[in-house]
Every structure is written in C-alpha cells, then in structure tokens.
Write a protein that binds this DNA or RNA. Structure first.
Lengths: 209, 209
DNA sequence: ACAAAAATGAACGTCAACGTTTAATTTGAA
DNA sequence: TTCAAATTAAACGTTGACGTTCATTTTTGT
C-alpha cells in the first residue's frame, strides 16, 4: 500500500525534479490551484504524469513543495547589514533598493496574486509565507533600529511601527497597483528617486529633535 | 436562439436577483472563479440553477455582474471633504479612519484575496477595480493637497507621490499581512493611534521648513 | 379567476481533470 | 554488459461542474 521510497541519486531524476517544480511554479502562478492542471505541468516539464505522482503524491503536496522551494529563495534575499561598517542611511538605502527590485519583479507580483487566493483553501499557507518572508525582514529591521536608537542616532516611540513604516514608504501602494495590472514603468532612475524619497522621509520622521 | 428578455418587474424576481448576487459574492470570494460552483451559488441563494442561467447567462457574466455591484459600493465609500470648513489635519484624520475601517473589513480582505488571482484570467478586471477604487481616492486627495499647497500650509515636490504616501502610512503593510491570514486584533483605540501616527508623520514630512 | 411569465427539480450530454494501472522502454551504477 | 530502478505512453474509472431541456408548479398583474 505505502509508496516505495524513490531513489533520488540519479542525475536525470534530480533534473526532472527541478523541471517539475519549475513547471509547477509557472502553471500554479498563471492559473491558481484549482485551474492548474497536472497534465499541463507534466507537459511543461516534459515528463510523464506518473513521474509527478511518484515524486509528489498528489496535487496539494506538489503545490506545497513548489511553495516551499520558492519561498526559500525569498528569505535569502533580505539580509540586513549591521551598523559597524555602514551608516543607517546607507543601509536603509541599500535595503530599500533590494526590496523595490525584488518586489516589483513580474514573478513576484504573479506570486502574490496567486498566493492570496490560496489562503482561503489553506490558511497555513499564508502564515508560512508571512513567517519566512515579511516577518523575517521586519525582525531584522527592528533589531537594527533598536541598535541605532541606543546610539542616539534616531528616535522612535514604537520600534515595531517604525520598522513597518519603512517598507510602507518604499513600496507605497505600488505593489497593490501592480497586482491589479498597473504598469509603473519604473526606470533605474525612478527607482533610485523613490528609495531616496522614502529614506529621506523616514529619517525626517525619526530624527532626534 | 437568442434569450428572451426576462420581466424583472416582479418583486420576487427582484429579491431573487439580489439573493443570487449576494450568494455569488460569497462563493466567488471564498473559492475564486475556477473553484466556485454555480450549483453551490444556487443552493446558497435558495434558487434553481436554471434561474441563475436565465438571469445571467453564464458563469463569466455572473462574475462580472457581481463584481460591478460590489465595486460600486466601494467607490461611494470615499468622499474627501474640502478645505473650506475643516483643517487639513482633521480631513486627513477623518479620511484615514474611514480608510482603515473599510480596508480592514473581513469582506474587503477576502475581496482582495480573490480579485488578484482573477487578474490573470482577465486583466481588465484589475484596471476596472483600480479606476473605480484607489485611483478615485488618489485623485481626490491630490486635488486637496494642491489646494493646501497653494495656501502655503504644506510643501511637496511631488503631489502625486505625497498623495500616495498617505494611504501607505495609514495602511502600512497591514493589508498585506491580513491578506495572508494575520489577525492584527485592531481595537478602536489602536485604530485611532495608528491614524494619528500616520497623519502626524505625514504632516512632519510635508511641513513648511 | 385566469393566463402569462417565471421558477423549479430532475435528468441529461459533455468535458476536463484527478489519480491509477499496466506493459513496455529507458537509464545508469556496478 | 547486466539488471534493478525509474520512466513512459496509453488506457481506464471516477468525479464534479457547466450548461441544456422539459414537464410541472408557483407567482402575480389584471
């Protein structure tokens, strides 16, 4: 009755597993969970449907594994430097650019379009993403801000809110508008301007008075 | 071949039409377009499936009509007062409270969860919503700010960006976190605090120096 | 009360997708 | 080269949903 453990040592198997995940990503992002078809994924990965079922069991599990592998990459994107070697201003500017670049990618917009819808089906999916992505970033940022406050560089009544404010200023309603199809046509210059605006505003709000 | 125009003058017909739209809203919000079932909608509205097909033709059209009626209500929610009788600070505070209340409703969160996913299926859905909702609000706000700048009360290099910044400060990443299942447990006091924080910050950024 | 319009339930055909089975083929480590 | 493990194509049973048809019943204006 139970499934045999597959032997994943073969190179072709390894490659197929990656192909399947990438095909699943593309199909799920395009169609959402319900409308995505396993057969289409198999075709995209140039793999037999049975191979997918052997590796991933069923549609739900395939979706979960796809999500896990995708979110893993997000998490590694945001490492916030420390204050030893850089000014707060420079750290925020660099982090803001990374954030803007990353979150305005087509792939990322598509990802958020799809993910929201799946939260109804399985709420755990949502908190899993929150923990591995935005929360992780917010915690790092809050730590950094606390250090900076102790050094007397800035002031804040509410570190948590101050940390949340930073991404808010950088992204604004941009991600929402893009999720609904708006194309902001962001050039490199426009991005730099936006981040500078955000950092300047944030610093102005938190300057020591 | 063509469908007979139905006689919508009957009271029961009128009521059924509303029931169907409400049931459709609930079902589409819960499941998304693909996974929603006409039969379930019929059951929820306590109406025969045939009645739905008589009034709305097919699933796509039903979805469109449901959307139209829902977005209509959103648009009416946001009216921004003028500067004649109120201070900018008070107008922003009132508008901020309205915004926060409206956008953190369960129904609204659910709406955004679902709508994003459907933009892939039909991009027009997205811009239709943008025009009737957020754009409308941003335009009103920009007009208000322009008037206030001319009176010398505030300063801004970029009115558009300043207008966008206000909802960003009020909502922050709140809507995103809620979309992924986080419950902020917002009390009335917490809401007022948040709005005050946002308005104060916004005014500080735009104060005449 | 009557007749036309509307709504109903039940059954139907069609289709697409899930997930399984099987027999034949390919792959790759020893 | 050999042989077990992995992969494949093809067919299958099943389920659920769209959208239709039709005979019957309910609603409602006059």
């Amino acid at each position: 009755m139970t499934k045999q453990k597959t032997d994943a040592h073969r190179p072709s198997t390894q490659r197929k597993i990656e192909d399947i995940l990438e095909a699943a990503r593309s199909e799920f992002f395009d169609c959402g969970f319900a409308a995505a078809s396993i057969e289409a994924i198999a075709a995209k990965a140039r793999v037999s449907k049975v191979t997918i079922y052997n590796h991933y069991g069923d549609k739900e599990n395939l979706f979960g594994e796809m999500l896990k592998s995708h979110v893993g990459r997000i998490r590694n994107k945001f490492e916030i430097a420390n204050l030893e070697h850089n000014s707060l201003y420079d750290i925020l500017t660099a982090a803001g650019m990374d954030m803007l670049d990353f979150l305005t990618q087509d792939k990322m917009i598509q990802f958020e379009r799809m993910l929201g819808a799946e939260v109804n089906r399985d709420p755990k999916i949502g908190s899993f993403f929150l923990e591995s992505g935005p929360r992780y970033l917010l915690d790092s940022l809050a730590k950094l801000l606390t250090a900076s406050i102790e050094k007397g560089e800035i002031q804040s009544d509410d570190v948590r809110y101050s940390a949340e404010m930073f991404p808010s200023l950088v992204m604004g309603r941009l991600d929402m508008m893009m999720r609904y199809g708006w194309d902001p046509k962001l050039t490199a210059v426009a991005k730099k301007d936006r981040v500078k605006q955000a950092v300047d505003s944030w610093m102005r709000i938190h300057q020591v008075s």
